[in-house]
Amino acid sequence: MYSRPIVFAIMATVVILVGTIAMMVVPLTLQSTQPVSPLVKPYTAVELEGRDIYIREGCNNCHTQTIRPLRTEVVRYGQYSKPEEFAYDRPFLWGSRRIGPDLQRVGGKYPDSWHYRHMDNPRSMFPKSNMPDYAWLAARQLDTSYSYKKTHVVGYGYTVNEVNKNLADYLVRVTSSAYIAGDARDKVTPPVLKDKLTEMDALVAYLQKLGMDVKNLNKS
């Protein structure tokens, strides 16, 4: 074998495939690895767009989205994570580093206005925070040309009309005079984009969805 490169390569492949099959292929076939639950809802089109911005900006390099079953962690962040909650997460965003706090249950923790102000300038609220400013996200209109295709690729099963309605409804929500966070949004959004969906709007929608399935369950 030590004088036959091809045989050697085949042997090496077989050796690494043993662990690969046991630890990676077999779990893929087991329901227990990624169970689904009717209580967990997929992201709406606008939330999915927000999630893509979260990925693009690499928020996951500073924030985790998984709460471990440890006492202090549950006190700090809320109920520990269940596998069902991630059934629609493609990719998963559990993260590996906590420079900032966990965000898995940040939805509903603060009003929208808090997020607009915080994303615009974290240091205006916490002078010692090291989170970057994301003010420019409010100055960029949300590109919705692929919104339907995206929900289609990840298999959420929305129709084109449903996606368009979701985007239109969300625009109405954030631009209506009744929107409670309207003032905060107006402060950070440039005048030309006030009646358009911005990337910041989508990101806030996403953050407010995080962990809500479990929180709603607890309420009912």
Partner: peptide, 19 residues
Amino acid sequence: VNWFKSYTVYAGANDANVE
């Protein structure tokens, strides 16, 4: 989805394990 964006074929905990 287009030239600059794609989604993994794995979801949630499976995606974490493969990754």
